[in-house]
Amino acid sequence: MSRALNLNAPQEHVLATCVKQKVAITQIESLVSGGTRIVLKNGDDAATIGRIYKSKVITGPVSRIPARMMHA
């Protein structure tokens, strides 16, 4: 399983869930199209979060903010 997930959930909620599950995040960002993109430390952690958010996993394309704009 990929370590990256796109979720139809607010970033604050995803962060709180990861803390509760003791799952390590390597990157997190809000999506332009709504929701949150998260990259987890390993596939097992991604599987855990994927199970929790199974009905909220975005499987299609998403709009992201280009990295150079995020640091401006």
Rank of each mutant, 00 (worst) to 15 (best):
N6R: 07
G35W: 01
I38W: 07
S30E: 11
D44L: 14
I52P: 00
A72C: 05
G35H: 07
I52N: 04
M69Q: 14
K22P: 00
K22N: 14
A46V: 03
T36I: 08
G43N: 15
I52E: 05
V14W: 09
K22A: 09
P66H: 10
G34L: 01
R64G: 00
T26C: 11
Q27E: 14
E12K: 13
A72W: 02
I38F: 07
A24N: 07
P61L: 04
L31R: 04
R64C: 05
H13W: 03
V39D: 13
T48A: 10
K20E: 12
T48N: 06
I58Y: 07
I65F: 04
K56W: 02
D45H: 15
V57I: 15
V23W: 01
M70T: 13
N8E: 14
H71W: 11
N8M: 09
S33I: 03
G35Q: 08
K22T: 07
L40V: 12
V39Y: 12
I28H: 10
V57D: 04
N6T: 06
I38M: 08
R51Y: 09
L15M: 14
D44S: 12
S55M: 08
I65D: 00
K22L: 08
I38D: 11
A72I: 08
S30R: 13
K41Q: 07
I58M: 07
A46T: 07
K20V: 01
I38E: 02
H13A: 09
V62F: 05
S2H: 06
C18R: 10
K54D: 10
V57M: 01
A4Y: 10
V19G: 03
G43M: 11
I65L: 13
V32Y: 02
M1Y: 00
G34H: 08
Q27I: 00
G50F: 02
R68V: 13
V23K: 03
S63R: 11
N8W: 06
K20I: 01
K22E: 11
H71N: 08
K54F: 14
T59R: 09
A4W: 00
K54A: 14
Q21G: 02
L31S: 06
R3G: 06
A47W: 00
A47S: 13
T17P: 00
L7T: 04
L5V: 02
L7Q: 07
R68T: 12
T26I: 15
I25D: 05
P66T: 10
Q21W: 00
V32W: 01
I52M: 02
T48H: 00
H71L: 10
I65V: 13
L7G: 11
R68M: 05
G60F: 06
S2L: 05
T48M: 12
V62E: 06
E29K: 13
G50R: 06
